[in-house]
Simulated assay, not measured.
Amino acid sequence: MTSVDGLLDEYQGYVLAYRLRRAVGGRVAPPGAQLTLAQYAGRRLERQTLARSLITRGMDAAQMRRLDTLSDELMFGFWLNPAEVAAFLRAAIREGSHPALGDPGAFAALLTHTERTRLGEAGVRRVCTHFLACFTLAAPMLDPDGLTDTFRRIEATRPPLFLDELAARG
């Protein structure tokens, strides 16, 4: 995957996390509107600059709060960070849960009609398998083989770029 595709994949993950959090609602609902690709890229660059500054020069409390705010807004690490996944699932359960947390059909409903058509039936299954596998990262990390198997399943089902917002890129 090229670096551009990697960043687009990151945005795609953001959009699906946004849609899922909005569907669950309550306290896990994102506070603002979904970012466009351009808005996401701008905030991602700002976050990257702040993170680099933290490592090279350190930062004051206001900069640290901004870094945390950007990380939360971008849902940075939402799908592949076991601690983030576990925190989301605990919060989602407190909100009453949602069928998309375990049912592939309900998760597929997070995709637009155009995205489902673009992916086809097998592609939709792959997307659902991939993202639902990410939820298993929340399992206790006492079983390193289980965690390795989970990451292997996640990598084996990495979906192509399919979002409507990315289809027009040339």
Rank of each mutant, 00 (worst) to 15 (best):
D103S: 12
R118A: 15
R153W: 03
G105Q: 13
R169Y: 12
L166P: 00
L119G: 03
L119K: 11
F76L: 11
M141Y: 04
L147H: 09
L37V: 15
A156I: 06
R116G: 10
F131R: 00
P31I: 06
A156P: 02
A91W: 00
R125E: 15
A108N: 11
R21V: 03
S71W: 03
S53V: 09
F107L: 15
R47A: 14
G13P: 00
L35E: 07
Y18R: 02
R94P: 01
S71Q: 11
A156N: 13
L119D: 00
S3E: 14
F162N: 01
V124L: 07
A100F: 01
V127P: 06
I154K: 03
A23P: 04
R169T: 15
C128V: 10
L80C: 11
A106R: 03
G105K: 10
T2P: 03
L80F: 06
T2Q: 08
Q63C: 09
A168C: 07
R118K: 14
R126K: 14
T49L: 15
V28Y: 01
A17R: 01
R94E: 15
A168F: 07
L70V: 04
A133Y: 09
L101K: 06
A168V: 12
S53N: 11
L142Y: 04
P159K: 08
R152M: 08
I154V: 14
R125T: 11
M75W: 01
A168Y: 04
T136P: 02
T136K: 11
T117A: 14
L37I: 12
S97H: 08
L70I: 04
A168D: 13
C134G: 12
